[in-house]
Amino acid sequence: MFRPRSDLPLEHDAANRFLPWLIVLIVYLAALALAGLMVLSTAASGWGRGLTDTLTVQIPPAASMASKDGVSDANSAPEARVDRALEVLRATPGVAQAKALSREELLALLEPWLGSGQFTEELSLPALIDVKLKAHSGVSLEGLAATLDAAVPGATIDDHKRWFGRLILLVRSVELIAGGIVLLVSLAAIATVIFVTRTGLAIHHDVIELLHVMGAHDAYIARQFQFQALDMGVRGGAIGFALAASTLLALGYLSARIEAMLLPSLELNASQWLALSALPFVVALISMITARVTVLRALAKLP
């Protein structure tokens, strides 16, 4: 495809017939790893926004409190408990806003798990209060938790930071692994091309020596190998990319149907697709350069 007329029957070498399939595999794996990397980076930066400086206060339903403490407080009507918590929160310096979620909002949050049937009417739900802190408020979470618990027994604070921190750690590790895979896979591509090129040099040693003696420049001989490698890289890369793209589209379609709230979107945006589609060309280019360098180094040893 990209090869000019050649003096060496490289395309008939066994190694040269397998290489494109190895490249297919390599590009396929690299593309998936790279796509995973990009999806995770997008998702992680999305999560980061809006989670800092927010708290959720959770107030358990009165019934469970009563059974736990063995006492029934006249003041323990759910609305009263929420109001008391709101009072405490609003009195705390550093809190910008505190707002209780309505039962409808709660049910909406739970709908993906519980559905919207009749029985949810009777469900006793914890009350949730969304709290926004002022930037750099320096609110002591331990102190606030103690005050709240005293005013409304059983109230707990969830700052999303710990959970978020762990999530980010997970994402970063997965990113690192994906990056590692991309790196290893590139090294595998380079090693494969070096191996195939060396094999070709050995098989065609006589022809190469003949061309050399006829006065061929090293670049003339290297060109034959490098275009062979480019050709294989482009063909293998295109097939590998096509396979990876179908896999990614299928995954994106499935994840869109699942509608899971916590799952990040598995769809790539246009610029990410563009970056991904450069992969086969990058691999082809790496193959070509590797073949050229390998041949030139071998030729330098001829008299």
Binding site: R5, V207, L210
Partner: peptide, 26 residues
């Protein structure tokens, strides 16, 4: 120009391409 003892013609090329080789190389 060299005529090799064992010819060293390239079997995958036609007679024409064999003879053309030095010109292509140049």
């Amino acid at each position: 120009g060299v005529v090799f003892q064992e010819f060293r013609l390239l079997d995958h090329l036609s007679v024409m391409d064999n003879v053309a080789l030095p010109l292509r190389v140049a």
